[in-house]
Nucleic acid binder design. Structure first.
Lengths: 338, 338
DNA sequence: TTGGCAGGCGAAAACGTTTTCGATTATTAT
DNA sequence: ATAATAATCGAAAACGTTTTCGCCTGCCAA
């Protein structure tokens, strides 16, 4: 049971490999008759081109690499979904790697993708990534690169993001609009741009609406998860008794906080309003359902691949390409926690 | 800025390509002196073998394909996590495809993976998959194949599963042990083996403990999601007023049900106990926290890749390989909903 | 001297494709 | 008739690696 190759078909038909190859790709210098013959024989033998040979010859793998901090994460898995769907449509496959928020791993994975000769790389940076020489290298090798969600401003490449600052501003403003006077913020780690921007949006909203910014109302949720939310909420209850609103960097932290308040008999939103971020679909399932900002993960993945695709196409044709930054719309979702 | 190749190194050193290649791979018929020389030069030039050429020559891609019904899903994304981590350790990359529970897509994706010449394929079947000729073809081509979670008994290959029947039995028994007398079941679609097995476990547990099985207490949650849980719960409340326990096929459905009961003022677990399945981590975050069965996704992914790796290794050495079915342990998790 | 052997190296084939550049024939214009 | 043009085809190089097989040199034993 040997593999079917162009050679095989050529021999069967008594013509050259060249002609077979060209016939299958509809080159204009092959007669209709020969084309028909070749295609028939190819179909009969179930001919499938050997991608390894094609790759070698064309220097393309029709594969892109994707590096994200965490796979088990509603937002990122939505992005993955958007990416692989779009990629498949365009005939590309996606290799997924997880940096676990580690800079070292991220760097290693970039090397891995380069050595695998993917046609493009999409990445959402690890929180701990500050050195970006590994990404510079990608640019030097002229491998199309796209960053999404967690990006670095130091790299000139296409980007897909939301306007974290504006979204956080809107979220905080919503709390103010519903009557909150003293609003705390559960923020993320200090480094990531997202975390900074959401914090700045929060701060600006306060200042624009005559509420004084108080740094003692800002709590850091290092891992931005459920337990962080629990701990921050407990700490908050110890530190302050006059807080009537919280804006959290992520739904998970908000849910953690809500569970604390539920337990202690503090009513949400009567005693304290809570605003999440991301619109993780569980937010609508908890009691009370969580007001939040919708962060379009699936859409982001889709747009991101489309943009990368454009760049890969340009590169193939040796055209030059102008990187773009695409900002996606977020949406304020009002539910029962505010 | 040309690519560095073996030829390049050979020319620089005035030796043959053959010797360079062999030196880099520590062949015994190259002198230590030459090896050192070659390695030094290779490092200096940052030589990286061209995988396309290596693939073509060795007929291996060091890549495996993974097909799952849904990426945005706690259990499956955990499996992905386990797989890619383990794969990376062994020098393999993972291409992820999503069947969206569609048989047609699944079939197409298998073809895609075959034509990409992956070294192995891992799959969790779409619910609608009954025809398995596409999987037979994988076997015929002697591509190592592994099925996990949603498997087919008609295919002889390695499998990694949990004992759904036993786990469901234990879950139902737990409801019985805590005093439930009339226990409903929110089951999944009719076809999938999982769904059948969990149903059978539920039924058997009833019968073994002197409770009569009543088919009117079984509700079908076609998509096994949050809304299904809501609808089933509402229907249940219309149909029956004496039910004091529910075993749901998945946490999501359980959470949907809980939200209905919360709304209607029906107390969980005082009026009705609820038992989920999967131990989706949100289950511990809701009120009341959900008793459930822990389904080890990460572990399953890890074990699955390891097993596939063994088969790929055997295949490379042309040894024959005995497929194995590995059954992973589940764990009953008692929380506040029972 | 001859033979055998080991160590070190390289020529060349092979993997299967794509594409350039001629070559050959058939057709048309002059 | 000749020249120019169009239509078809194929030889061969190229992509970069791996691996088989044989060659050469030097050494030792008989």
């Amino acid at each position: 049971m040997k593999e079917v190759t162009l050679k095989q078909i050529a021999e069967n038909l008594g013509i050259s490999i060249t002609t077979v190859s060209k016939a299958l790709k509809d080159y204009p210098d092959v007669s209709k008759k020969t084309k028909a013959l070749v295609k028939k024989e190819a179909k009969k033998l179930h001919y499938k081109p050997n991608v390894f040979a094609v790759n070698l010859r064309t220097k393309e793998s029709k594969t892109v690499g994707l590096i994200i901090p965490e796979v088990v994460h509603h937002f990122f898995s939505s992005v993955i979904n958007g990416i692989i769907e779009q990629a498949e449509k365009k005939g590309y496959l996606v290799i997924i790697l997880q940096s676990n928020e580690s800079y070292k791993l991220e760097k290693k994975q970039i090397d891995l993708l380069i050595s695998k000769r993917v046609d493009g790389i999409m990445i959402s940076l690890a929180n701990k990534t500050v050195d970006i020489s590994h990404l510079k290298r990608v640019k030097e090798l002229e491998i199309p690169l796209l960053m999404f969600d967690k990006i670095s401003k130091m790299i000139d490449c296409s980007k897909v993001v939301i306007n974290d600052r504006e979204a956080a501003y809107a979220a905080t403003k919503h709390l103010i609009d519903t009557g909150c006077k003293r609003i705390a913020h559960f923020r993320g780690a200090l480094l990531p741009q997202n975390s900074i921007d959401r914090f700045l949006g929060y701060k600006k909203a306060l200042e624009d609406h005559g509420l004084k910014y108080d740094s003692s109302l800002v709590y850091i949720c290092e891992n931005v998860d459920y337990n962080d939310g629990i701990n921050a909420a407990k700490q908050l209850l110890e530190d302050h008794d006059d807080v009537d609103g919280i804006f959290t960097i992520t739904d998970l932290a908000a849910i953690g906080a809500i569970s604390v308040f539920n337990e202690k008999g503090i009513r949400v939103p009567d005693d304290i309003s809570i605003m999440g971020f991301s619109n993780w679909f569980v937010s609508s399932a908890i009691t009370p359902s969580l007001s939040t900002v919708d962060q379009p993960g699936y859409e982001m993945g889709k747009v991101a691949f489309k943009q990368l695709y454009k760049e890969m196409k340009a590169r193939r044709k040796h055209e030059d390409f102008e990187p773009r930054t695409i900002v996606l719309e977020t949406k304020l979702i009002k539910r029962n926690s505010t």
